[in-house]
Amino acid sequence: MVKIGVLALQGAVREHIQSLEACGVEAIAIKHKEELNEIDGLILPGGESTTMRRLIDKYDFMDSLKKFAADGKPMFGTCAGLILLAKNLVGYNEPHIGVMDVTVERNSFGRQVDSFEADLAIRNVATSFPAVFIRAPHIVEAGENVEILAKHEGRIVAARDGQFLGCSFHPELTEDHRFTAYFVEMVKEAKQKTLV
């Protein structure tokens, strides 16, 4: 049985926890860095990436998050979470956690009035998936080992780089839990490997 955490500094934490529970795994909100030791995988939720970054710095979370990644544990970033995971950010010199080999541009679809819903085909997950984009970022460039999972109008909106999964949209805002289930499988596989 795996246990998955949701970084709970700010944002859509409850929805991710409900989605994980719907996938049949134990889910907990992570408010303190020590709690990272209890979990097998971590979701970085949607919210405001600047706010989350302030709070990550304030509570000295950054080293623990980097260690979590270095330990090979899976991480899944949705929207703001994708921004936190990316190695490069358009218009910024420094990344945040900087572990997923992608370049991400913030608010790249425009302001809130441009936010939208669209049906997406997600590789290995669904031929039609309801995706909610809110002031969403997108992946401008992906490293050679990154598997592109979904595109919308030519832009990369979901990708996997080994243990890291990221998407521009909010799978937690719908009742469709297939993408969350895909991450749960990643976590189970990673845990299996460490046990062997």
């Binding site: 934490v13 009035v113 936010s115 939208f116």
Partner: peptide, 20 residues
């Protein structure tokens, strides 16, 4: 592609939760 749906409008506020 749909803009201005309840999910998109309510979802925006969901992303603000826990914030000031």
């Amino acid at each position: 592609m749909l803009t201005g749906t309840d999910r998109v409008k309510r979802g925006m506020a969901e992303m603000q939760k826990g914030g000031v």
